[in-house]
Amino acid sequence: MRRELHAEWTKLRTEPGTGPLLLAIVAVTVAVSAAACATVTCAPARCDHDAVRLGLAGVQAGQAAVAILAVLAICGEYGTGMIRTTLTAMPRRGAVLTAKAAVVTGLTLVAGTAAVLGSVLAGRLVLPGRGFTAAPLSLADGPTLRAVAGSVLYLALIALLSLGVGTAVRDSAAAAGVVLGLLYLSSILPYMVGDPDWQRLLWRLSPMNAGLAVQATTHLSSLPLSPWAGLGVLSAWAGAALLCGGLLLRRRDA
């Protein structure tokens, strides 16, 4: 397994797109979070916004960069034919995918931590000027810490989901379309049905809505899922995608 890890790390490290993508994860997340905070004005009398969730809004955009990183980690090899060399050198295909997953997750955790902490800092600086006069965002606060740590894990799980889809689909553009379609479309699906029971069910099943429940710090009781259970739903999606990708990788010709 060490050999596979080392090989995958070398490949991803030397890929010219990796550096810019990691930067993009941080930049997009922080910029969108800051922009979201800057466009909101909170009336002091009835300020009902979830400041933590608002400060972490950029994760919804930053996850797109995470998805490209993970999709390219596998589809890039299919695009260039490198995958045949990889699988010749390391015939244990399951181990190759596991090593890829470990390396991509590791990089996402690093970039994700920087991105999320940057967003919190942006929120801390911007929000008080927009009418959020309550205590500024602070990691010492239990729910805030949970939201921050959960957001980093969320990005890592998105990377795993994208890697699984990329392995199954193989074409990078199509894989990116599938991942983003799954994330963004499933998040609006609950609002398209009229029936409240169906709404709640679809909301619970949607990887993005359920996964981002981990960011909520107010009105927790009205959410259809508890924060950690929501992240569990996303883990199930990521696990299923990786399993599906892994099985296809074993069975198919490269």
Binding site: I68, D171, A173, L180
Partner: peptide
């Protein structure tokens, strides 16, 4: 492809 699709979406 992946970068373009993701950016467009």
């Amino acid at each position: 492809g992946a970068a373009a699709v993701t950016t467009a979406v």
